[in-house]
Structure formats: structure tokens, C-alpha cells
């Protein structure tokens, strides 16, 4: 599953080198920031020499969704300060996705950390490979960035299969479209805020109906 991070990393590495930076910046960005969708935006920001405050605000908005990952990620299974430190550092979308299942709640400390370490390595290794290959890959070869779309699409299908509740993905789709067209500059934070509000409303509604029944 985390293998999907590799082609995405390659796409990112190619972009880093094609933007004129040294190849090893791809390793630095992907190894330290380690947040796929932010890194693609980050690259655009630093190339435009954006102020650090803009970098901070963008990182906050794009990665705010990670706040919710604390609800189900099995950090209680991970032992040691160092282990917990790394585990929170490497809590990427992919790491969250592979641990959302019921089974992950009883994974061993070692298993959680190895899983996260491998996904981290796939991403950083992919970015480094892409950066090294970047000068070799002709500019005519385009479209590698679709790997990110394919990844999230496939994860959405699997998450739906785990709990076949049709209204939730439809609500999320509607929120994403509202975010895209009503708040184009702030699509992610807007969509997540409306989606969360929608879930809270639905929860309150079903509780009231149960109380009446």
C-alpha cells in the first residue's frame, strides 16, 4: 500500500530538479517535511521566495486534517519516547490510511514503526530517484503527478468498502466541490471545515431521532 508513495515521490523529485534546484533538495524536502501534498505547494512557494509566514500558514491549512488522525492512529501501541516521537513525525496520509482498520489497533509497536519507516523510505527514496533521473527523463514525458490522484481515489474506495455508508462520501464530495468553487484559494480548509460541520450535524440529528424513538 505504501508503495504508492514511490511513484509520487518520483514525480516530486522530477519537479524539484526541473525547477532548477540541486537533486539533494528533493531528499531534504521529502525526508524532513514528509507531507506529500504540502511539498508540491511548498516547492512553488520557495521558488517564489515567499515569506516564512506564508510557508507556515500554508503548512497549517494543508495539514490541518492531520489533527483528526489522532482519533484513530494506534499511537498507544507504540513504545518509547523516541518511537512515539518518530511515529507522530511520520504520521502521513498514507501511514494513517494503512492503520485505520480495526486490525491496526492491536498491531505491535515494531509493526507500526516499520510500516511508517517503509512508507517514509518509499517517499524519500522515490523523490531522490526522481531527482536523479530528472535530468535524464525528457521533458516530453509528463503526467506522473496523477499518482497522487490515483492514490487518494483508491484509498477512498477502500475506506468506503470498510463501511458502506453512502451519505458520507456524497457529503464529502459536495464539500470538496463547494470548497473548489466557492473558496478556490482555500479549498482544503474550507472543504474540511464544512465536512466536519456536516458530520456533527448528522450525528446530532441521528441522536435526536433515537431519543424520540
Amino acid at each position: 500500500m505504501g508503495l504508492g508513495a514511490f511513484p509520487m515521490g518520483v514525480a516530486f523529485g522530477v519537479l524539484v530538479v526541473h525547477s532548477g534546484l540541486h537533486w539533494w533538495w528533493a531528499s531534504v524536502f521529502s525526508g524532513f517535511i514528509y507531507a506529500g501534498s504540502l511539498e508540491f505547494l511548498f516547492l512553488g512557494l520557495v521558488l517564489a521566495a515567499a515569506p516564512l509566514a506564508s510557508v507556515a500558514v500554508t503548512a497549517f491549512l494543508v495539514n490541518f486534517r492531520h489533527v483528526f488522525y489522532a482519533l484513530s492512529f494506534p499511537l498507544h501501541r507504540v513504545r518509547g519516547r523516541l518511537g512515539k516521537g518518530y511515529s507522530t513525525f511520520a504520521l502521513s496520509d498514507e501511514a494513517y490510511a494503512v492503520t485505520t482498520g480495526e486490525a491496526a489497533q492491536s498491531f505491535s509497536s515494531r509493526r507500526v514503526l516499520w510500516l511508517q519507516g517503509f512508507i517514509h523510505l518509499y517517499w524519500a527514496g522515490g523523490a531522490t530517484t526522481g531527482a536523479l533521473l530528472g535530468s535524464v527523463i525528457p521533458a516530453q514525458i509528463t503526467g506522473l503527478d496523477f499518482a497522487v490522484t490515483a492514490l487518494f481515489t483508491v484509498l477512498a474506495i477502500d475506506a468506503f468498502r470498510a463501511r458502506r455508508d453512502i451519505p458520507i462520501p456524497l457529503l464529502a464530495l459536495a464539500c470538496a466541490l463547494v470548497g473548489r468553487f466557492a473558496f478556490p484559494g482555500q479549498m482544503l480548509p474550507a472543504a474540511f471545515a464544512i465536512f466536519t460541520a456536516g458530520l456533527l450535524t448528522r450525528y446530532a440529528w441521528t441522536r435526536r431521532e433515537r431519543a424520540h424513538a
Binding site: 494513517y96 490522484t149 487518494f152 477512498a156 475506506a159 462520501p169 472543504a191 458530520l199
Partner: peptide, 27 residues
């Protein structure tokens, strides 16, 4: 963690988050 609201968000959130991120990459 023991609150029923948090349990609900926990089960409902993943599919929605993935759908929103998928649409985001297609913006």
C-alpha cells in the same frame, strides 16, 4: 476516545478525508 461522538467521527472521517483529497488533486 471513549466519547460516542469521537467514535462516530473516527469511523466516518476516513472515507470523507480521502474523497476530499482526491478532488483536491483534481482541482
Amino acid at each position: 476516545r471513549s466519547s460516542p461522538l469521537v467514535a462516530y467521527l473516527n469511523t466516518a472521517m476516513p472515507v470523507g478525508v480521502m474523497v476530499i483529497l482526491a478532488v483536491y488533486t483534481l482541482r
